[in-house]
Nucleic acid binder design. Structure first.
Lengths: 216, 216
DNA sequence: TGAGAACCTCTAACTAAGTTAGAGATAACC
DNA sequence: GGTTATCTCTAACTTAGTTAGAGGTTCTCA
């Protein structure tokens, strides 16, 4: 396989699952590609450019092949599916959310996705400016949620306080102790989607033809 | 001033504004403290422990002195104020959100804050399990939003595509091009709070005594 | 067809950052 | 007053990002 900056970023993403972001060195990556480290510098300016390329690839992979909502699909269901899909892409790679966080992709399929989201929301009755402010909420929530989830998964057991039984002082903090299981349970998918539905319920109140009691 | 791990983490946070997270080396930090780098290792196991301590301090600083909602204050207003306050704390330090992301603080004032949030939500009519799933949405949104904001602020101008005028192809992506100004305008505070209100509107639909049309 | 240019990879090596070893200094304790 | 605990230092090791510059291959074009 030919060595290109794209192929390098691709290999880097896959190397994440073995070594994690902190373990991803230029030498490790080079070895993965059967090449010496300095070779990579012919293809990329520096490591930051590699990280940017990885984030870009991640964003593109999440956006790839997205289609407009089906006839029988509400915009809410469609957005849930989109967010779940984004999250799954992040989860596919160890530290994926950290890699993607704060990066800007102008990959065609990413911009196309943004356009599609805006169109869907406008069709649903959102003002353009409202749509533009509303949909990033979902993205930011997804990133924030998944960063935390992956941090929890990746933390050394001797560093992660939650590994040692979520012991909160039930005397002083009865509610916190009581829901600790809900907060950090295994079913992160369900927790994530629960939060998503809160956001979408909220967004529904911001449609122009509002029927319900949008606050204020 | 006496050198303690707490003082070191404190100095590290403040050093962020001069050098940023990537520029924060043990040597730079040591110099800031008028000490040699290896000295730091008597107080902390390694750099990761320093980063954890910084995150913990940040969480504590955000939580410090929080009070229960006033009589005349709705739980929604109270949560908005809390999130705004969290965000302001993150913004106080360059790369603050990146430092805080994915860290777990068991600092007393943090746990106390969680307890206070849960109590407030339960008083507002939330089921415990619902409250436990709902409030992290706000935190994750805050982290996600602020990471992106700070990334944009910190990016080199030659690396950041948005620095060069947000040029989207208006032919192929008319909606995106049209709202680019809304998406990446200066008034991030307003954008942040707009998203917050969406979330809170959504949460309002998840109170037990629901009156509105909470979706399914 | 052969010379040169463009393309790509290599070895060697530099710099800087995290970290360890272990010596000394000061203060506390018995 | 000696011993121990506490803290800081210098010296140095290891690893990671990166650069310099020497080949080798392939492509171009006279």
């Amino acid at each position: 396989m030919k060595l290109t900056s794209d192929a390098i970023a691709h290999a880097a993403l896959h190397a994440l699952n073995e070594v994690g972001l902190d373990g991803l060195t230029m030498r490790v990556l080079a070895k993965e590609l059967g090449v010496q480290a300095p070779t990579l510098y012919w293809h990329m300016k520096n490591k930051q450019e590699l990280l940017d390329a990885m984030a870009d690839l991640l964003a593109a992979e999440a956006a790839e092949g997205l289609e407009a909502p089906r006839r029988d699909e509400s915009w809410q269901e469609w957005l849930v599916a989109l967010a779940v899909r984004n999250r799954r892409t992040l989860l596919r790679y160890r530290d994926g959310a950290r890699v993607a966080a704060g990066a800007y992709s102008r990959h065609p399929s990413v911009v196309r996705t943004i356009e599609l989201i805006l169109r869907t929301l406008q069709d649903a009755g959102f003002e353009p400016a409202t749509a533009a402010r509303a949909f990033p909420v979902i993205l930011h929530y997804t990133i924030g949620f998944t960063i935390e989830e992956q941090a929890r998964a990746g933390a050394d057991y001797d560093r992660n306080p939650y590994a040692e039984g979520l012991a909160f002082d039930a005397e002083r903090f009865p509610l916190t102790a009581g829901v600790a299981g809900d907060l950090y349970n295994e079913d992160t998918d369900a927790n994530f989607e629960y939060g998503l539905r809160i956001i979408l319920t909220g967004m529904s109140g911001f449609v122009v033809q509002r029927l319900g009691k949008a606050q204020e």
